[in-house]
């Protein structure tokens, strides 16, 4: 077992709500993500995929089971180890409007993490590093001292990606990072993520409802339905040879920009 997992969920469960009106969002799920993996978690709304992501990054404690980072239970981490975990595992959220602080300049938001972890010697080096990073996500330097409200959704998502990368993480968890963006902007952000993952050798956990998007970025994926993983494996083989009925029905429902095939499908569809 030299092959140590970077991040691992062991039989994690999460229940929301009071006893008589409770809902099990994640139900005993295990998932192991090794260094350099790119793993997709796909499912529809209510499948538990976002709850899963939040537990992996440590934003939600699991009710049962545990999340392990480099073999250690995340909930037991203290001191340096805990701070390493928080730095090494970063997250990009779905809504770039809600996930930036409206009253802080972009620079201050990008510098907050590196300052906390004392990544750079002196303000000058910090600024140089942030500037380089900021340009590398496709933004121009004159925007660095502005506020989030001055940017479009796509630009804000670039800022959020830059903020996550600013602390030099090893694992990037993205929860539906492109689902609120226009198609042409979506493609830009997907390409940016793809480039950054390979350039920085990042481990990627990508949560999305869109299987085609997940396939574009992830070599393997886990399909979730009602809090459980129903199918898991190599992306290509899940697409070419899905086993579980739920995966099949998801794949069958994806519309494609192909009028001939789509007309055929619509004419066969039953109205239930």
């Amino acid at each position: 077992m030299s092959d140590i997992s970077y991040l691992e969920a062991l039989e994690v469960s999460k229940v929301f709500g009071r006893r008589n009106r409770s809902k099990t969002a994640v139900d005993g799920v295990s998932l192991s993500v090794k260094a350099g993996d790119s793993v997709g978690i796909v499912g529809e709304s209510g499948s538990g995929k976002s709850t899963m992501a939040r537990m992996l990054v440590g934003l939600l404690p699991p009710d049962k089971g545990l999340v392990a980072f480099n073999g250690d239970d995340v909930s037991q981490l203290r001191g340096k180890q805990k701070s390493d975990f928080r730095k090494d595992v970063q997250m990009v959220f779905q809504d770039p409007y809600a996930s930036l602080n409206p009253r802080m300049t972009i620079f201050d938001q990008l510098a907050e993490g590196p300052r906390l972890y004392r990544l750079y010697d002196g303000e000058q080096r910090l600024r140089a590093a942030i500037e380089e990073l900021f340009m590398s996500v496709g933004m121009s330097l004159e925007h660095l001292n502005r506020y989030p409200r001055e940017f479009s959704g796509g630009q804000r998502q670039r800022v959020c990606i830059a903020r996550a990368l600013a602390v030099q993480p090893r694992i990037l968890i993205c929860d539906e990072p492109v689902s609120s963006l226009d198609v042409s902007i979506q493609a830009q952000i997907l390409n940016l993520l793809k480039d950054k993952v390979s350039e920085l050798n990042l481990t990627l956990i990508f949560v999305a409802h869109d299987l085609a998007v997940v396939k574009y970025l992830c070599s393997s994926m886990a399909v979730m339905e009602r809090g459980k993983i129903v199918e898991q494996g190599d992306s290509d083989s899940i697409f070419t040879n899905p086993i579980h009925e739920y995966t099949k029905s998801l794949l069958k429902a994806i519309p494609t920009p192909n009028p001939i095939a789509e007309r055929e499908r619509l004419s066969r569809a039953k109205v239930q």
Binding site: S152, G154, Q155, D182, V183, S184, I185, Q186, A187, Q188, L190, N191, K194, D210, L211, A212, V213, K215, Y216, L217, S219, S235, D236, F239, L251, I254, T256, P257
Partner: peptide
Amino acid sequence: RGLLDSIPSIDQSSEKRLNSIPGVT
């Protein structure tokens, strides 16, 4: 053309990059 190229396809090999349209509206 750019819009059509921006849609990730389930048949497309993941090695191929999406041809995105640069810039914003």
